[in-house]
Design a protein around this nucleic acid. Sequence first.
DNA 1: GTATCTGCAAAACATTTGCAATTCT
DNA 2: AGAATTGCAAATGTTTTGCAGATAC
Lengths: 143, 143
Amino acid sequence: MENSETIDIKSIQEFLIEKGINPSFQRLKIYEYLKKADFHPTVDNIYNELIKIIPTISKTTIYNTLKLFVEKGIAQTLTIDENEVRYDCNTEPHAHFKCIKCGRVYDVMLSNVDFNYDYVDGHKVLDCHIYLRGVCKNCLNKG
Amino acid sequence: MENSETIDIKSIQEFLIEKGINPSFQRLKIYEYLKKADFHPTVDNIYNELIKIIPTISKTTIYNTLKLFVEKGIAQTLTIDENEVRYDCNTEPHAHFKCIKCGRVYDVMLSNVDFNYDYVDGHKVLDCHIYLRGVCKNCLNKG
DNA sequence: GTATCTGCAAAACATTTGCAATTCT
DNA sequence: AGAATTGCAAATGTTTTGCAGATAC
């Protein structure tokens, strides 16, 4: 599961079981898609992709499954923009960059930024998100 | 306008005109409330407060006005949590901390964090948000 | 008198909930 | 059969839109 080139259904199945999640077909496919879609898909993205493979799948199942994944700690929500919740299953500390032209969301690694704050201004910190917005290198090249 | 203790309607009026915003009574009151409510209010917070002063005010006006403020660059949206858009008119670079117990959102200053990234991974950065979540010092003290 | 601004009501969306049908063992 | 899972349809809640009346200059 460490390398995106080595994703296969069997290892995802073992991973979900290990995390206490019954690996139904729908759940396997949702996790598989999350892992390989590096642009951090929305519920709609996931639905529109999986309906091709599982014609009976419903958005309710996508919502239920993502909620379960978040509860079990194997995915997190990104709310980099209002009215657009995205999902990420990359568990390493990283920041997110959203392109205001093409809308894509990229993972970025920032040096000398501490994602593991302990206390700030006396508040106990449990979680840290860094969101950047701008124009991505693809869109810059297009003019 | 620099110091929260010196807010008065007249200076807000001048400020809005300077920014190209016609200072109607509703707009003045919305900006005034935004300036003094340091917990970063939601549309609902603003509505519930201003209905006391302006009994005929509608949420549509709040939405319209906030949209205008964001367009004119005198306010920004915070989407630290999904399903909850908050507004901030503090224009200095700062991070936001949300308490998972009481729900309050605090401004926090982080040292050695650069809010003015120029390029990251080849992407042109225009905007940077840092969101922290945890338990605030008030809630820590309560046990 | 004309532009702008306001606010009601309806529409548009995303998400959640209740529940019945389906699937798995 | 029994428990978990799925998915439809309805409900909920937030934000947007259309438009008519009010307000300001």
